[in-house]
Every structure is written in structure tokens, then in C-alpha cells.
Design a protein around this nucleic acid. Sequence first.
DNA 1: ATCCCTGCAAAAGATTTGCAAGGCG
DNA 2: CGCCTTGCAAATCTTTTGCAGGGAT
Lengths: 152, 152
Amino acid sequence: MALSTDHFPPTPDAGHLRARLTQAGLRATRQRLMILESLLTLPGHPTAEQVHRQVISQEPSISLGTVYKALDSFVAAGLTRRVAAAEGTSRRYDADCTEHHHLFCTNTQEIIDYCDPQLDSLIREFFAAKGLQNFQPHSFSLHITGSKLASK
Amino acid sequence: MALSTDHFPPTPDAGHLRARLTQAGLRATRQRLMILESLLTLPGHPTAEQVHRQVISQEPSISLGTVYKALDSFVAAGLTRRVAAAEGTSRRYDADCTEHHHLFCTNTQEIIDYCDPQLDSLIREFFAAKGLQNFQPHSFSLHITGSKLASK
DNA sequence: ATCCCTGCAAAAGATTTGCAAGGCG
DNA sequence: CGCCTTGCAAATCTTTTGCAGGGAT
């Protein structure tokens, strides 16, 4: 358990999305609402291009530039994070800003969220006890590379 | 301690570099020798551009395209890895292919290698005991974000 | 009404590709 | 010698920027 993709978010309702933007200090435009919804719904942490493909299927007039600008504003507002990935050429985004870890599937290139408070404690305790020379750690994220198994 | 940058690699001798390429099944050209040397010497995991700047200071005729092709060949041969980074626009490379972790300095944008067999065991044991649903882990890399402190 | 946001198009930045000439084994 | 690699330049892909018009508060 604990793979966040086990439970695909049920399409979040418009009110919730609007609140999320407003609380982050962003104007709730039609475009941003759709972009945020796509980000929350698309699996595997999408690129700007993938978000764009998703939103234009509903509203073809939204431009790719707007998607880039919206994603930038989400990151600046702390609503979204950029994902660290070694593969691929494009930036990928993560709508979840709480501390968590990532599973990298070498087959599908998906990046799957993994939350585990027990693991978090283990790591924090390790560094609290051991320390790092000349470095003040601030946050930890474990990258687990491997392959997704067919879920029955 | 154990921050690999504590001990800057003494300029590796040509014979060693040549052996490394040959063992990986690559032709030891003048360009590749210089590119590999730069990769091993430059701190913080350089981009292709940074490697290029370094090599042209010795041999101005080497082109950026050659640097890209050489780095690709190193990665394909398992001599080098691409680094997973959330910040910046360019790819960054790591000449060390053994399992290790990374410190990300939010001030300097440097990515510093961190080796710790004790940490490796801790993580492996954790997942051996706990397991992951629908995922077969293959390797682990901890990303530690924080700030480098002035070393006295 | 005021600013912020959008769409478009051009620009900038990063990486890849094709090809002729040269170098390595 | 034969094949792989290089240098160059053009092509491609990704992301950013400038600006005029439109929309949210």
C-alpha cells in the first residue's frame, strides 16, 4: 500500500480548485482551474506538453505558453513543485507539495508518489544522529528506481 | 564527513582515463579523454556546456556537439550517469556510477556526492522488511536539499 | 477601474541530426 | 583499411519573453 496512485483523485470539484488557487494568492482564471485540475488528475507527473494536450481536449483555445506561465505561477506560489528526473528532456510537475518520495518506473517513465511517515522518521533520525559535515539539510526525498508490476 | 568533494580528485593520469574508456568499450580519442577528465574534475556535476567551456580552455577546436555525443556515449556505456535535478534547464552528469546519494545546495546549485554504506543498508533493510506494493525496486538514491556551510 | 492573465508569435536556450573529413585500432 | 568519431551547421525541441487585448476582483 501507500502508493498514492492507488486511489486516483476523483475529479476535484471546481470550488475546491478555486479555493486552492485563491489561498495561494493566485487569481482563479478558467485556464488555471483547468490546468490545476489536469495536474491533479494526470498520472505519473506530467510535463507542460502533457498538461496542454489534456486541457485543449476540453478547451482548444488554451495556448501552451499559458500552460507554462500557469505552472510557473503555481511553483512560485508553492502550490506545485518541479520533479527531479534524470530521464527525458522536459520538466515534470508534482501537484503535491508535502514531503514525499518518488518511484521511478524504468518501463513507463512514470513517476509515482510514495508517502511513508515511517521512512521519513527513519531518515530524519539517521541524520539527526549522524549529521552531515558542512551541510545543513532541509528536506529529504528518496528516489526509488525500479519497475512497476502489473496490478491484479 | 564522507562528502566526496572534500577530496578533489587529483588530475587523473592519462593512462587511467584511457583504461576506463577502453574497458567500457569506447575508443579512446583525444576529445573523449579530455571530456572524461573534465567530468571527473569539475565540481558539482557539470552540464555539457560547462564541460565544453573547460575543455576548450585547453583545446579550443573541440565542439559542443562532440561534448554532447561523448557524454551520450559515456552514459550508454555505463561510464557516466545523468543526474536527476529539479532546478535548472540543462542536463547534468555524474561520472560516478556506484550507488550513492546527492546533496543539493539551494545557494550554489551544486550537487554534491554523498556516499554512506550505513545509510544504504538502512534503506535496503527498510524495504526488505516492508516491501512496496506493485513495484520492484532496483536502486535507491536519497536527495538531500539544503545549504552548504562555509568550510573552515 | 486596475492589474493581472491570456494568446500569439518571435526569441532564446538546449539537444539532436546529417554529412564530409579525419583518426583510432 | 574500415569503422567510429569529429566538427560544423542546420534542424528540432523546450521554455521564455514581449506585447496588445480581455478578464478577475
